[in-house]
């Protein structure tokens, strides 16, 4: 027989309780020491097969290698990323849910135009490697050759050319800004709206519309079917070097296009700085892995390392500009 009494049992269970409550209240440093101890969910607020989905899947093995835990892709598409963003914010801030998303302009747009129940600042960037820019393009066989020609024609008669664009997007803001700067009467334009970049690109390549304003990256597979007129970027874009810069024809302010990559909730960054650091280090190392760079390049996916500070700044700048021009979008 052992001298195991009820009192001992109480002691043991009390000790257990203390240990459990200790775990719960464990300071973040301790919790970070064991992080990550189980698989991590990557929330992609888009459907399977989109850019972010492909980016997350292609990057996954290299990030897994750094984190030492498997990643699980969770697609939460809908409402212009609002559903996925809300879902991410509802997860515990423990580092087991990270986002792979087109942070800008989707997060600011859901806040500005859909009254999403969160703030732009609720998300913090780890790295946004993919930077897209609005491209004004026409069908490769079309009569228009340059952006200056577009402006000239529209100034004479604003309804002489039809324009394809996605409403409430960075592309739309850029179009309005460019025409304002050029002095084109925007109220008489023949604007055809498309509910996505894909349909707008098809309409441009198929000459359904005379000029399309759409994110340039998606045009790459259709490159031979379109003629680039102007790209809304400050300096030459390495993935589309033959696209003339908007600055060459027109002095106008513009909004940068999609900024895609890795993000977490700001709650995690503030409450679990150690875990945030681990995630940043892992993404950085994976982004600089030569094998990752090579593989992703073949799939036309970006791996450039900008880091959390630069990425966050780019994201917030974009959000501020979107807020500034929100009236153009409505």
């Amino acid at each position: 027989m052992t001298d195991f009494t009820r009192r001992d049992a109480f002691k043991i269970s009390a000790g257990g309780l203390a240990a459990v409550s200790g775990m719960v209240a464990m300071p973040s440093i301790l919790r970070a020491a064991t992080y990550p101890s189980r698989p991590i969910n990557v929330i992609v607020p888009f459907a399977t097969g989109g850019y972010n989905d492909r980016l997350s899947r292609a990057f996954m093995p290299y990030l897994e290698q750094e984190l030492g835990q498997p990643l699980v892709i969770v697609n939460k598409p809908g409402a212009g990323t609002q559903l996925g963003n809300s879902y991410a914010l509802n997860q515990p801030a423990d580092g087991y849910s990270i986002l792979c998303t087109s942070a800008a302009p989707y997060i600011p747009l859901t806040v500005l135009l859909q009254n999403a129940p969160y703030k732009v600042e609720d998300f913090s960037m780890i790295n946004l490697p993919s930077r897209d820019y609005t491209l004004a393009a026409t069908s490769s066989g079309g009569p228009v050759k340059t952006f200056a020609e577009v402006i000239e024609k529209l100034k004479k008669d604003p309804s002489s050319l039809s324009i394809g664009v996605q409403p409430a997007s960075a592309d739309y803001a850029n179009m309005v800004l460019a025409f304002q700067a050029a002095g084109v009467d925007a109220s008489k334009l023949r604007i055809v709206t498309y509910d996505g970049g894909g349909p707008a690109r098809n309409a441009t390549a198929g000459a359904q519309v005379d000029v399309g304003f759409v994110g340039g990256e998606g045009f790459l597979p259709l490159k031979s079917k379109v003629r680039p007129l102007a790209i809304f970027a400050a300096e030459q874009v390495d993935w589309y070097p033959d696209a003339p810069l908007i600055g060459a024809t027109l002095k106008t302010d513009f909004v940068e296009g999609s900024q895609r990559g890795w993000a977490v909730t700001t709650k995690l960054k503030n409450e679990q700085p150690e875990i945030f650091k681990i995630l940043v280090a892992a993404v950085e190392k994976a982004s600089k892995n030569p094998k990752a760079i090579e593989t992703l390049k073949l799939q036309e996916l970006a791996t450039t390392w900008y880091g959390p500070d630069a990425s966050n700044k780019a994201y917030l700048d974009n959000a501020a500009k979107m807020a500034k021009y929100v009236d153009l979008l409505k």
């Binding site: 989109g50 259709l222 036309e300």
Partner: peptide, 23 residues
């Protein structure tokens, strides 16, 4: 064209791209 006619072909395009082939 590399354009999905519907949801199913959008997935196929993704599969192509994931094998480094851009239709």
């Amino acid at each position: 064209l590399g354009i999905p006619g519907g949801g199913a072909t959008a997935i196929l395009i993704a599969a192509f791209m994931m094998h480094n082939i851009v239709p």
